[in-house]
Simulated assay, not measured.
Amino acid sequence: MAAVCVDDSYFEVGDDGRLTLIPGQEGLRDVLYFKTPDTYTFKKADYPWLARVFVMVQAGGGGAAGARANAGQLVAQPGASGGGYAERLIEASALGATESIVVGAGGDAGTATIDGGAGGNSSFGGLCTALGGNGGQVVMASGSTPVCHTGTSGPLAGVGDLAQGGGPGGGSFRINGNEGHSGEGGESRLGHGGWQRATSGGGGAGRGYGGGAAGALARDGDSVNGTAGGQGIVIVYLYG
């Protein structure tokens, strides 16, 4: 009779005499991407082989304010901050039968006289949460004299094995009625903030996921709206 040697770190003989792979030794089997802002349901029963999950949670970035300037004057607004990020390795035994997945939206674009909106939080159940970026505010009044404004603070860390807040939005300044600079958008773990402006228009939009929008700039009677923040994302790695 032939004999076969197997590594008992990976295989076991069941009560029925069959040689099987030990649960949890298969490695990565699937990756789920939730890219559209919404609420989803993760059902553990859909993956009977599941041993653990590794989740990456990126919140939405803040939206930036618009700007309005009088004739011969200039307004430049600060940028919005990037969304926070969190990650966690979770054993299947710690999961509920269902877990709610939330993908945070980017913050709304502000108008010429209204602040940008905050980015939405993203989460995987109550086990991993990232906080949305703060919106850029309408802080600079129309004028032609030198002035500068502080940038927008980033959100605090959320919940996870690793959790961090988003990057701050950049400050803005005016040199005179024709020259100035808006603030850049804040960075995120999975995205970049928008580019700042030295000419009239809305600030740049973020790239990737969770970046903050740059502030708007207006001069010589211009009125411009702000820019929306980058949306969040949740990524779930499934291990068997």
Rank of each mutant, 00 (worst) to 15 (best):
Ala3Thr: 15
Val6His: 12
Val6Cys: 09
Asp8Val: 09
Ser9Arg: 13
Glu12Lys: 09
Gly14Lys: 11
Asp15Glu: 14
Asp16Asn: 15
Thr20Arg: 15
Leu21Arg: 15
Pro23Val: 03
Gln25Met: 13
Gln25Lys: 15
Glu26Ile: 08
Gly27Trp: 00
Gly27Phe: 01
Leu28His: 02
Phe34Lys: 00
Thr36Tyr: 01
Pro37Ile: 03
Tyr40Asn: 08
Lys43Gly: 01
Asp46Val: 00
Leu50His: 03
Arg52Asn: 06
Val53Asn: 11
Phe54Glu: 00
Val55Gln: 07
Met56Thr: 09
Gln58Ser: 05
Ala59Ser: 15
Ala59Arg: 11
Gly60His: 10
Ala65Arg: 12
Gly66Tyr: 08
Gly66Lys: 09
Arg68Cys: 08
Asn70Arg: 09
Asn70Tyr: 10
Gln77Leu: 14
Pro78Gly: 13
Gly83Asn: 12
Gly83Gln: 13
Tyr85Val: 12
Arg88Lys: 14
Ile90Gly: 07
Ile90Met: 07
Ala97Tyr: 07
Thr98Asp: 10
Ser100Glu: 14
Gly106Asp: 02
Gly107Leu: 02
Asp108Ala: 15
Ala112Pro: 02
Ile114Glu: 13
Ile114Leu: 14
Gly117Thr: 05
Ser122Ala: 12
Gly126Ser: 14
Cys128Ile: 12
Thr129Arg: 13
Asn134Leu: 12
Gly135Cys: 10
Gly135Asp: 12
Ser142Arg: 12
Gly143Val: 08
Ser153Thr: 15
Ala157Tyr: 10
Val159Asp: 02
Gly160Val: 10
Gln164Lys: 13
Pro168Ile: 06
Gly169Asn: 06
Phe173Trp: 14
Asn178Val: 11
His181Glu: 08
Ser182Gln: 08
Ser182Gly: 06
Gly183Phe: 10
Glu184His: 13
Glu187Trp: 06
Glu187Arg: 10
Leu190Gln: 02
Leu190Asp: 03
Gly191His: 07
Gly193Ser: 09
Gly194Met: 04
Gln196Pro: 05
Gly202Tyr: 02
Tyr209Gly: 05
Gly211Cys: 02
Ala216Gln: 01
Ser223Arg: 06
Gly226Tyr: 06
Gly226Asn: 08
Thr227Gln: 15
Gly229His: 00
Gly230His: 03
Gln231Pro: 03
Ile233Asn: 01
Tyr237Ser: 08
Tyr237Glu: 12
Tyr239Phe: 15
Tyr239Gly: 01
